[in-house]
Amino acid sequence: MNLTLRVWRQSGPSDAGRMVTYRVEEVSPDMSFLEMLDVLNERLILEGDDPIAFDHDCREGICGMCGMVINGVAHGEQRATTTCQLHMRHFEDNATITIEPWRAAPFPVVKDLVVDRSAFDRIIQAGGFVSVPAGSAPDAHSVPVRKEDADAAFDAATCIGCGACVAACPNGSASLFTAAKITHLSLLPQGQPERLSRAKAMVDQMDAEGFGGCTNTGECTAVCPKGIPLDTIAQMNTDYLKANAK
């Protein structure tokens, strides 16, 4: 396959950035999207150019480090797939592919396609945990959990923190990310004691970071590589309202 790439290049946070066009030839359909970029980068290095910086690590769809907006869609059009697991066979020969970083004020661009997602960590810091020092836990079987609750908690807990939800949201909202953690812990008995204070603190932190509000458009869940359901946001809202009613 031969492809034309239009890639966002930005040398650093203070650079304005621009789209740059590259031609990539003899791409194998079995390559992953990132391997295609690797091939381009190898060429750029040898030509003395700056290779395209992008985040990636596990390359098996679980660490959440990779992510770019491909042809206007976070992680590309293949559903439930991270960028690293997207393969070139889903593209047409001679296609032009537009590649951009996650765009949101709370995710400032570090370089090219690399953005700073530390806002997510600070949302977790605000309350996305159960306070339990090591060694103080009771026997694991002392509190049974309904299988349905455990399963639903797991569904929410599979969030990989990639930020695609923010990238796709027309409001730049981090509601799906925040709600996934709130829901995960809300559904389990272990999460009950801190349930309301957690929801309040996390939502307030999300706002303080400068993310937009949710308008229930569903764009987030449509691009989420783990398919985190939209009703986690309803759970977050319930807990947040209850916390404020107190």
Binding site: A137, R146, K147, A153, Q190
Partner: peptide, 21 residues
Amino acid sequence: NIIDQAVAQGVPFAREYGGLL
């Protein structure tokens, strides 16, 4: 102890219908 610790933290291990791990 690891399992106890993880469960207390809210790690959603697979469970059976009786609610046990």
